[in-house]
Computed example of a mutant assay.
Amino acid sequence: MLSAFRLPFRRAFRAGAPDQAKAAVGPRAGVSVMVSGLGARGTGRSYAALSRSGFLGNPVAHRAVRLVSEAAAAVPLLLYRGLPQQGARELTGHPVLTLLARPSSRATGTDLFETLYGHLLLSGNAYLEPLFLGARLAELHLLRPDRVTVVEGADGWPLAYDYRAAGVSRRIPAEGEPQPILHLKLFHPLDDLTGYAPLAAAHNALDLHNAAAAWNKALLDNSARPSGALVYQPKEGGNLPPDQYERLKAELEAGYSGPLQAGRPMLLEGGLDWKAMSLTPRDMDFTDARNGAARDIALSLGVPPMLLGIPGDNTYANYQEANRAFYRLTVLPLIRRTLASLSGFLSDAFGDMLTLQPDLDQVEGLSAERDALWTRVGAADFLSDEEKRQAVGYGD
């Protein structure tokens, strides 16, 4: 997929590619052979571009997206009738709990939520379509964001959603009884209809990290040396003959490229001189640049760099504090905003006031906080047993 966000010099090169390419390889007096070279390529902000260059092609983005989506999908859910802050009653046996545990014949509840959170992180949008058998909500299915187009009405609000798959397009109305689709989206300051992907904010860092990895690999493939040129400087004028030019290129590719040829001295004939044409890896300081880009990628997704093993980040005193901050600042806000929308959607489908909440007592990353709370409440002799239960989040 060609990206619209290429670097300016990349566009300039492509604009005059035929003539420039011909001039670069032709036999001339002066620069005769360009050795190595690694072009930069920008990553677009679309779901497909971020998925390919980020989740599928970058280890930091891949691990960070999986860390958030898997942690959020693993948090158990509680179902209440009514609002918890208004004395709602917890429901332990309800069709909603059965549906969320097995939303379809092809997926479990964990599969559904992990994919949903992944869509939000890579697209900023998630589309949940219900399947009704008569009046009963039987299944829930996620639609891939890049296959959905929001149809804007005359008033600026969503009118419908066009879904394309297997060469067929169908239109899903935005409103109806029951609600035909649930559109979950993250905040986008410049778009009223769709959300903004968190990973898109780090697309420059993603490009830098991927380019640094490609550079290091190319450096290894080219005998661990930077780009340069062989300059032909004859004493009595003239050009390098075409047959000698082709022989020189073949010898360079066969005898001086690849990791097995690392350190091999180059033999130059009369009139040939090597001129380095780029900074050394030490000057470009790739290690710090890659670590800085990795931190930006992790921070855009709300993952403390310490959890990903990225050096140079001492924000938290230890791993436990970083993990607790990860749940408090990233996982739980994402879960709560998702469950708020899902609660309203399911309430309309079942004709009842239902509220979904995360079960924080079973979140291992917050166990230290719960232990400290129970210890403080248990030691409060001035509270009754009923008040203590309410203080730790339990009903009467």
Rank of each mutant, 00 (worst) to 15 (best):
L199V: 05
L199H: 00
L184S: 01
H203K: 10
P180N: 05
N222S: 07
W215H: 08
G156L: 15
F187C: 13
Y163W: 13
A212T: 14
E236I: 14
I181E: 00
V151G: 03
D221E: 13
E246R: 11
H209S: 14
Q233M: 15
A205T: 08
A218L: 15
V148K: 00
V151M: 11
L248T: 02
S227K: 13
E177Y: 07
S169C: 13
V148H: 01
G195I: 09
A213P: 04
A214F: 04
A205Q: 03
E236P: 06
P198Y: 03
G153C: 10
H209L: 08
E236V: 15
V150T: 15
D243P: 08
H183W: 01
R225M: 09
L190H: 09
V168A: 03
L186R: 03
H188Y: 03
E152K: 11
R164A: 07
W157Y: 11
V151K: 03
D191K: 06
V151D: 02
D207M: 07
A254P: 04
E152R: 13
T149Q: 14
P198G: 11
S227P: 08
R147I: 04
V148T: 10
E253T: 12
R170N: 00
A250E: 10
D243L: 15
R170H: 04
L182V: 06
I172G: 00
A154R: 15
T149N: 08
L184D: 00
A205K: 05
K249H: 08
K235P: 06
Y163V: 03
L206A: 05
A166D: 12
E253H: 12
N222R: 03
P234E: 10
R164L: 05
G238A: 09
R247T: 06
S169I: 13
Q233T: 14
P180A: 00
T149R: 07
L230W: 13
P158C: 12
L206Q: 03
K235C: 06
P198I: 04
P226M: 09
N216W: 08
